[in-house]
Nucleic acid binder design. Structure first.
Lengths: 157, 157
DNA sequence: CCCATACTTGACTGAATCAGTCGGAATTGG
DNA sequence: CCAATTCCGACTGATTCAGTCAAGTATGGG
């Protein structure tokens, strides 16, 4: 799973959508202003989000986007996967026999495990968690250096 | 921390180095043949690995590269960080005040936590672990996933 | 001293992705 | 109809990836 600012933008936008979605559809221009993300770029991202059925659109005046499911059923991993390019293993795309022999490129298992680790973390954070955290941000969330992973769901890749 | 095949190549090459380094320096052309990585590309990667002092070079005939430290003190995270571009947070590079206000872009903590998660996993796997796994490749996977981060370098990602 | 071996360095390339733009559609409430 | 809004595709400049090429420099062996 690749990780760039693209996915970050998408999550930020989805969070904005969740925060402001209680009064009908949310326009992209609204998100654009609040989150300082280019409107045209948002259009691109929401095209993907819509095709992956994470959001639904309402056209015409008064239209906009709203979440397709309850935010507790939308994980950050879902969002990132929807917009980000996959980045697989170059050679040996999942199968063994990466080199000429039967070697399966030695580090195969390592990357596979890392992938499930990252995915597990992101899948364990629901959009509703972010909403919650955002709504009561009276206190600084910054705790000590080693932040304690939030207990949302059992990490099961 | 970005993750592409570049880091994968680097780890594979370092593993090859660790596996064949018991009989003097290992040549890049040897690694190139065994691991099917372009020689010129390896030259690039080892330039970085050398500047970050993960490997040492011996010039001239019979020369090549060898590890700069014991493989138990070289984590996968070290290797990946040495060759991969950093990929920071676009706007708000660590500091608050990402948007015009005091908002610090809402998802800030999320990405910070993810980063330490990924880093923790990779820092917990030493090159010697991969060597071990490769030598008797019947043996099982990594022990408790990223439980005990191995202390190679202070975590300052 | 020569020379082949090997590292070292820097410039260069094509492809892909990122981040963003632009123009124009289609849809629909007022 | 009109304005707001989503939709769609093509386009762009910058950056990175993966790899190439062409020079170096160092050095062990003969």
């Amino acid at each position: 799973m690749r990780l760039t600012t693209k996915g970050r933008f998408a999550v930020t936008a989805m969070l904005d959508l969740a925060l402001h979605g209680d009064k009908g559809p949310v326009t992209l221009s609204g998100i654009s202003e609040r989150q300082k993300i280019s409107l045209s770029y948002l259009e691109q991202l929401f095209g993907k989000l819509r095709r992956r059925e994470l959001v639904e659109s309402v056209r015409g005046p008064g239209g906009g986007y709203h979440l397709a499911r309850d935010p507790s059923l939308l994980s950050v991993a879902d969002i990132v996967r929807a917009v980000e390019e996959p980045l697989d293993s170059t050679q040996c795309g999942g199968r063994e026999n990466c080199l000429g022999n039967n070697e399966r490129c030695m580090t195969h298992d390592l990357w596979a495990e890392l992938n499930t680790t990252v995915y597990g973390f992101l899948a364990g954070v629901a959009l509703s968690d972010l909403v919650q955290k955002q709504r009561n941000k009276t206190v600084s969330l910054v705790r000590g250096a080693a932040s304690k992973p939030r207990d949302t769901q059992p990490v099961s890749a």
